[in-house]
Design a protein around this nucleic acid. Sequence first.
DNA 1: CTGTTAGCGCTTTCAT
DNA 2: ATGAAAGCGCTAACAG
Lengths: 357, 357
Amino acid sequence: MASTDSGRPGAGGTPAPARAAGGRTTSRDVARAAGVSQATVSLVLGDKWRGRVSERTAGTVREAARELGYRPNLAARNLRLGRTRTALLVVPALTSEFFARVYTGANGVAAEHGFGVVLYPSPVGTGPALDPFDSARAALDGVIASSMAADTLSGMRGGGLPLVMLDSDPRAGTGTAATVNLDIADGMRQVARHLLALGHRRFAHLAAAVDSWTFRERAGALTRAVAAVPGPALARESAALEVEAGRRAAERVLRVAAERRPTALVCDDDLLAAGACKAARGLGLRVPEDVSVTGFDDLALATAVDPELTTVRLPAEAVGARGMTALLDALDGRVPDTAPLPVLLVPRASTGPPPRP
Amino acid sequence: MASTDSGRPGAGGTPAPARAAGGRTTSRDVARAAGVSQATVSLVLGDKWRGRVSERTAGTVREAARELGYRPNLAARNLRLGRTRTALLVVPALTSEFFARVYTGANGVAAEHGFGVVLYPSPVGTGPALDPFDSARAALDGVIASSMAADTLSGMRGGGLPLVMLDSDPRAGTGTAATVNLDIADGMRQVARHLLALGHRRFAHLAAAVDSWTFRERAGALTRAVAAVPGPALARESAALEVEAGRRAAERVLRVAAERRPTALVCDDDLLAAGACKAARGLGLRVPEDVSVTGFDDLALATAVDPELTTVRLPAEAVGARGMTALLDALDGRVPDTAPLPVLLVPRASTGPPPRP
DNA sequence: CTGTTAGCGCTTTCAT
DNA sequence: ATGAAAGCGCTAACAG
């Protein structure tokens, strides 16, 4: 297995080859080349030399480093410093734009503070046995976990690292540094209000078959919003988070006599909504004339399909940014901001008044 | 904390506080708790103790480690070993399922060899100044880069690490350990053959406005395939890799007199194809009756839209797996397999015979 | 201003 | 079968 094992061939009388024979350039090589000590190199390259090293020496050192193509050994630095300036972002799926945008937001804030962010896609099964602290070999200063399934949480507590939860149950936070949440419930309330105002009274909820806070929140909020006005009915059907599963679930819900058929399909996710639209068309129903459909997330898909989806826009970048900020705060002993982020209904072409009976 | 020797009574003497006061548990803490030397701990926990440490001692050590919740310090291990068993996977975009699947494939192979894979989404601008070796703070043994834009390549050569390119120009490989490619050209040829067989003669190519090998390959292959038979015309229009950009580009191409209008839109990507379908419908044209549309990649989107897209399926997982295998080979001095991976046209509902004039 | 020194926590000879 | 000791490359006290 050992690959790069030329390691340390008994170096005879050194003719001062500024670069170690087989290995990488070290700070000592730079020091030798510049004719200074290792400490000076560290100071200069670490940019803490103002008033401690002469301008001229600093220049020499930088020149030598450039010349030799010196790159500091992270492992050594991390070992010495005891921290890595690296955070792990755990996401349930790589595919989704939502998480891509969360990453972008987190990475932006991280970069401003000299931190890096490493992605860990939680294995699909999301069994409790996940171990990001072994799998992502990077040594870590903290963990940010987004939208994790309930049972995955438990496994997450390894390493005793600061943990920031994103889009997750705020009450689960025993030992959690902070929870950054979206106002999911308000989003669902906006959906309900929109549809009720259009005149809908028979609803069906296409729920994601994923046991996580964010989806329980959506279900609860919809139930309450619909129950708040007299009269309306609410059916519910679950589906895996895929277009095809959404299509099948919607088909089950729509295949009933017209007078009992829901006039509005509220979906937990844009993928499900896309499936719902396909189901409707497959049954000869028009969207939105015969049945209105709403999504959630406002992914690119929402405007890729026809008609474009009425959906709830989630400020994903902001979630990531706030998550990273919270982690940084926790790391520095400050108390993280924890107000929920607002979300916004974006009405488009997939919703309209219910059909006249 | 009670006295720590719950596992190993009888070893009088040291009341040693098995866990360092403020910090994490180290292998020395474990050694003390188990009443052995650090070396023994390393041997046992590194699973190289057969015949070197007694069964009984090994048990004691493992018990102590478990008891104390010991986790080896990766930074120290990496420093000592000079390698990290970590590879970096550089991808141009997080959003795409394609890269998610490449990751999955790479990670699977990596795991079998005790490696981890860390993702580095190359910044959107893909300016040449990217530095994954600083951004992803993890120390790395090698880099796998997928579908990178041409100018991004140059920046990639930092660190002198083994580099495996995926879906990239094989000739760019100066200093590259290996290139794992898809038979992109053959995919495009299959598309052309399919459409020609259906009777199409007026084509338009919706090209991705991204300067990378994979898209140049698609353009070249289509041009050649169409030129190979007498008669056909081929227009070309570029668009950013987004549905809306694809829609606009398709609109430009379709907004001409019916007798000059292309009857088949060959798109570089499923996103573009989805946009093309929207454009067609927006202009009152039916897909595939009035115009056929093909995609590339076979993303989930391909079956989410209506009609489902005829597209070229790319074996993304296999690409990732082969990439990781090639990196492992290079690391161990073996010579990587470099045959292109086959791709397959999947005919669906978005293509049909051209309209009768 | 600059050099010397002492480890960070781990693995690995080499003695015992 | 086990322990002692060296050292990976780096940074931060502390001397000079």
